[in-house]
């Protein structure tokens, strides 16, 4: 090797590429988009249908699920090496249930009106397959930071779909957005949008659109010269 080549500094990778190559980014992208819990894995559908007729309730539910998923994955990853394999599910459920109860208590204390409306569904986060799924599939094999990112990304991916379903439901059903008037008073309200069937239709449309976008992106990558 020549003197010049030996002294030359290694080429600096652009920041965007470094971020894209980092494990945190790849973990986040996988859960947020590539393997989104709702439109790829069809997990956590019950609450997605139940709380999406008002954007405010949806935001609170999304925050609760994101917090519980991220923190339970992180907490379990911290104690995973000490946890015997035979009791791991018991410990995982204990962590998840405790976090859900904490969220429930804080909602009751500081957001009582919202808690009264979605309290039952907040309690059901304990049984949300998304939360236990991420702890069991990822946090049992990875460190606390990556597990936190994975849980946070799964919560964000869940929130993305819920918000896409809830926005048209509140606007067309109640004529409002986050409680503020969004359409003229004279426009007739679509009562069906407030009821559960609209949640099914809305979720189906969002799954269809997102899966379509993913397939289109895959086809464009597979084409010769595609990115």
């Amino acid at each position: 090797m020549s003197e010049h080549a030996r002294n030359a500094e290694p080429p600096v990778m652009p920041l965007a590429l470094r971020i894209k190559a980092s494990p945190s980014y790849r973990t986040f992208k996988a859960q947020f988009w590539d393997d989104n819990p709702l439109f790829r894995q069809i997990l956590g559908v019950c609450s997605a249908l139940a709380v999406t007729n008002l954007v405010k309730n949806t935001l609170v539910m999304c925050a609760a699920v994101t917090l519980v998923t991220a923190c339970s994955s992180c907490l379990y990853a911290l104690i995973r090496n000490a946890t015997p394999a035979r009791t791991r599910l018991l410990v995982q459920m204990l962590i998840i249930a405790s976090l859900v109860i904490v969220v429930h208590l804080f909602l009751g204390a500081y957001m009582f009106a919202v808690s009264e409306q979605i309290g039952a569904y907040v309690g059901l986060i304990i049984t949300n397959c998304l939360v236990l799924g991420r702890v069991e599939a990822f946090a049992t094999k990875n460190g606390p930071w990556l597990s936190f990112v994975d849980g946070f990304a799964a919560g964000c991916g869940y929130s993305l779909v819920l918000l896409l379903v809830s926005l048209p439901r509140e606007i067309l059903g109640f004529g409002s957005l986050c409680g503020l008037a969004a359409v003229p008073e004279s426009m007739p309200r679509w009562n069906i949008m407030v009821m559960a069937p609209a949640g099914f239709f809305g979720l189906a449309v969002v799954i269809w659109v997102c899966r379509g976008l993913q397939l289109r992106a895959q086809a464009s990558k597979a084409r010769p010269g595609g990115k």
Binding site: T83, T87, L90, V91, L94, I95, V102, L105, F112
Partner: peptide, 27 residues
Amino acid sequence: MWCYTVAVAVVFGFALSFVNQLTAAKI
């Protein structure tokens, strides 16, 4: 296994009692 499970349950039980005490009056 028994000791570990009991210890984890006690720790989380205490944490929940603390949060409950913190929010009970407000609720």
